[in-house]
């Protein structure tokens, strides 16, 4: 028996908005530790990894591991029936072929009860090696969303360059080119600030497809800040924390010079 109750139901709604356009369906693995889901887009350029730890939920029970094979368009349609301040409960039997979703309104005068049919998804799980990142950059998530949107008007590639105390985003194309530089700001504890941490002082610069970065920024509402981790010739990691007990992470393969 699996049952998980999320007081902040909006977390699930927002997570689905950040997932459904990249991966059409996925296995949501439920264990005593929490719920995790990972999947790649069809062209194997971006990997999406969702982690919702058990203490994100105010009630969490998972007697035996349960796999919920979910179609994300359907799941999203059902979640759209939930208000942002609804309490959402997920329930499933062992070896389930359906999942029960319960939405309770904040003032408890409305409850909605949905059953979603599960699908068999044979999806290999990828091992993500630990990587020493040359640079870890934190920027306000809305700022990053705006930069990706603005620069993608110039072309299909966005170059992210990090050097001491500064991160630069640039794009070039037929109409011209653009470069946006963010300086590390003073007190980095405030959510609205920029922080740039470098492993060594060697600058690094990588190119990425702007289309995917714009998919990732659909998760912006999950967190005030977004973390970018770069390492030469390695995938970019774009992370949105979900409170202190969860995250939605994206791994994007770089564009390699000829």
């Amino acid at each position: 028996m699996f049952e998980a109750r999320l007081l902040q139901g909006s977390i699930l709604k927002k997570a689905l908005e950040g997932i459904r356009e990249l991966i059409t369906s996925g296995n949501w693995e439920c264990s005593s530790a929490g719920i995790s889901m990972q999947g790649m887009d069809p062209s194997h350029v971006a990997l999406t990894v969702l982690m919702l730890q058990n203490d994100l939920f105010d009630q969490f029970r998972c007697d035996r591991n349960v796999t919920l094979g979910l179609n994300h368009a359907t799941f999203s349609k059902i979640l759209k029936c939930a208000a942002n301040d609804d309490i959402i409960t997920l329930k499933a039997e062992d070896q389930p072929d359906e999942c029960n979703l319960l939405f309770q309104s904040a003032n408890d005068d409305k409850t909605s009860d949905f059953i979603i049919k599960l699908t068999d998804i044979d999806q290999e799980t990828l091992g993500i090696p630990d990587t020493e990142y040359a640079a870890t950059v934190k920027v306000p998530s809305v700022e990053f969303q705006r930069i990706c949107r603005d620069l993608s008007q110039f072309g299909d590639t966005i170059i992210i360059s990090v050097k001491k105390g500064c991160v630069e985003f640039s794009g070039t194309g037929e109409i011209g080119s653009a470069k946006i530089a963010l300086k590390e700001s003073g007190n980095v504890d405030d959510d609205e600030k920029v922080s740039v941490e470098m492993d060594k002082d060697t600058p690094c610069s990588l190119s990425f497809a702007s289309r995917y970065l714009n998919y990732f920024t659909k998760a912006t509402s999950l967190s005030d800040t977004v973390t970018l981790q770069l390492c030469p010739e390695h995938p970019l990691v774009v992370s949105y924390d979900i409170g202190d007990n969860g995250s939605l992470k994206y791994y994007l393969a770089p564009k390699i010079e000829e």
Partner: peptide
């Protein structure tokens, strides 16, 4: 800006 690489060259299937 070069060609798009694939994650398959970075991540191993478990």
């Amino acid at each position: 800006h070069g060609h798009q690489s694939s994650l398959d060259s970075f991540f191993r299937k478990k």
